[in-house]
Design a protein around this nucleic acid. Structure first.
Lengths: 236, 236
DNA sequence: TTCATATAATTAACCAGTTAGTTAGATTAT
DNA sequence: ATAATCTAACTAACTGGTTAATTATATGAA
């Protein structure tokens, strides 16, 4: 065993990184059949759905391949193993969040405005991708061994910078007397909880209430509530 | 095959349910070796830990048996299958919560006091059992097929009554002008999110901050924050 | 008191189905 | 041709669940 050649190629994203004189013409993709980037994207998308629905252990690689209309071996061509695929999903989810949220936090808005913009941006990102919380929820709690390592990487890469900026906004707002004094270590996870939890619990709520919790109208109401709720809790 | 007798006995808890004229004397347990109730309890406890750590699909029945110092077959003697064991865990968790929280909601306290008592009781229950959120989180999102059925039962049995009482408190408080007007469908899940999320995220926070998020001191601070945060958001 | 019997509690060993991951080859654009 | 892209079929390992036997306890008839 362990003789194999098909070693996984980690860096799939580069397109025409002219390595060694081979490619010269302006054509931008070599030796390709079908649409490889699309295959990869389809796999990732299917993985998001599958991981969201069943969690990491419950997710079936066969199901992902089937949903992506792709042979299972292709998963292992693009991703080292199931774990790496899950990490790719995490990166996808959180890089999207960061892209949406960091510009706001780095803007020159006054604290109060900035906080509201942040909350809105965060909410909108999740509302546009209601599956994302479910992909993550199942994993950021496990402290044991490997799970921890995986999430720690994500945490350091995405959470830390966001948390840092957010703590700074809080400091400024408190100093300016606009915010009530709060510990970021308490405030930040509370906000995340308020925003995320509603979407995690939506399937369940649907069975209890008569209202569809993810209808457009409801989501608008929910957005207004969240902003108001946190405003009332934070602003003086 | 299928000749066997050892069919799973669902109702383990009854002790001296004198069935048919056979037993008459007051003796309460027959043909018993070891401490069966203890075995069952050990299994349940181990299951809580295992399900919390790995989720339902990731949990290993072998690991549960090992942790409970019990042969694996004994799991299936006390519980029909892995799924039934998980349901038993859910019942354990939520019946504990209900026991802790319903008396408060059924008391005669004025709305404001009652809400604060409720929040405190809820928080304390979770703080005393920080694993519980993790046991549940992984499951109440999956709407697909079986997962839904399982959680719907729990939802109807435990959530609905609590939600109902809570909605009533809100109505009264709002009517009395003590509370700001909020939709229970928004307020309730927000509160749950704020309380629960901190504990779910604790393992991760531990790796980011230097502070131990579950230290006694920190938990006291957190409790105060949660009550204050929600008070500020709800009370006029 | 004692011994046969029923029954509850427990276990070692096993099995069948599932699943992550592999392999050897096919297909296609250049 | 050749490297990139893709696939059907396979396998090694794992895991939920079963089985048949075993041990301990209580019961009650002799």
């Amino acid at each position: 065993m362990k003789v194999s050649a098909t070693a996984h190629r980690p860096d799939r994203s580069r397109r025409s990184a002219g390595r060694g004189g081979a490619s010269r013409s302006g054509t931008h993709r070599l030796g390709t059949r079908g649409r490889p980037e699309e295959s990869r994207a389809a796999i990732l998308k299917a993985a998001v759905a599958e991981f969201a629905e069943h969690g990491i252990a419950g997710a079936r690689t066969d199901a992902i391949a089937r949903a992506a209309h792709v042979n299972k071996a292709l998963l292992y061509y693009y991703f080292k193993d199931k774990d790496a695929l899950y990490e790719a999903v995490l990166d996808h989810v959180f890089s999207g969040l960061r892209a949406r949220v960091m510009p706001v936090l780095e803007s020159k808005l006054p604290p109060r405005r900035k906080m509201l913009e942040y909350l809105g941006a965060y909410f909108d990102y999740i509302a546009a991708n209601p599956r994302f919380p479910r992909v993550v929820q199942g994993e950021w709690m496990r402290s044991g061994a490997n799970g921890s390592a995986r999430m720690q990487r994500v945490a350091r890469k995405y959470f830390r910078p966001i948390f840092g900026k957010l703590a700074q906004v809080l400091r400024e707002g408190i100093e300016a007397g606009e915010f009530r004094p709060v510990n970021p270590m308490d405030f930040v996870p509370s906000v995340v909880g308020v925003i995320i939890f509603y979407f995690s619990a939506a399937p369940l709520m649907k069975t209890l209430m008569k209202l569809e919790p993810l209808s457009e109208k409801r989501i608008r109401e929910r957005r207004a509530f969240v902003l108001d709720f946190i405003s009332a809790a934070l602003f003086r």
